[in-house]
Simulated assay, not measured.
Amino acid sequence: MGSFSIWHWLIVLIIVLLVFGTKKLRGLGSDLGGAVKGFKDGIKDATAEDQAADSTAQPTPPPPQVKEGQTIEGEVREKTRS
């Protein structure tokens, strides 16, 4: 009951080929490859957009100095991506 030998894997492969056929398996493989390629391209594009946004962003000015006992008014907003 340990690991499978090469003969076990060959029998499984033959059964899979008989059940699904080579055409269907080839189509499944090309669909899966296209999905992986699309995912990689999407990650590459998103990284390039982030780098372009970082290089065009204006530096934020330093916050004003607060004196002791001074009350600061303002509102908190979520950071949004553009």
Rank of each mutant, 00 (worst) to 15 (best):
P63W: 04
T60I: 09
L17I: 01
S3M: 13
W9L: 09
I6E: 15
A52D: 12
W9A: 03
G42V: 06
S30G: 00
D31V: 03
I14V: 12
K23W: 05
E49A: 06
D31G: 11
A46D: 13
G33Y: 11
R81S: 01
P62V: 08
T60N: 10
E49N: 03
V76G: 00
Q58P: 00
G21V: 04
P63S: 10
T71C: 02
G21M: 05
E75K: 12
S82I: 05
H8S: 09
D54V: 05
F39M: 11
L18K: 08
I11S: 08
V12W: 09
T60H: 04
T80Q: 15
T56H: 07
V12E: 12
V66S: 01
L18C: 08
G29H: 04
S82F: 09
A52L: 08
P61A: 15
I43Y: 03
E78A: 03
E78T: 03
V19Q: 08
E75P: 00
T60G: 01
G34N: 15
T80H: 06
G34M: 06
V16C: 08
L10W: 10
S3H: 15
L32D: 03
K44I: 09
F20D: 06
A52H: 03
V36M: 11
M1K: 10
K44V: 07
T47S: 05
K23H: 09
T60P: 03
Q51T: 10
T22L: 08
W7G: 00
G33K: 07
Q51H: 09
A53Q: 13
Q58A: 03
L17Y: 05
R26Y: 04
K79V: 11
Q70L: 05
T80G: 05
Q70I: 02
G2R: 14
V66Q: 13
Q65T: 13
K44F: 06
T56W: 06
L17T: 01
R77Y: 14
K24R: 15
E49Y: 01
D31W: 13
T71P: 08
F4P: 05
V76I: 15
V36S: 05
G29W: 04
R81C: 00
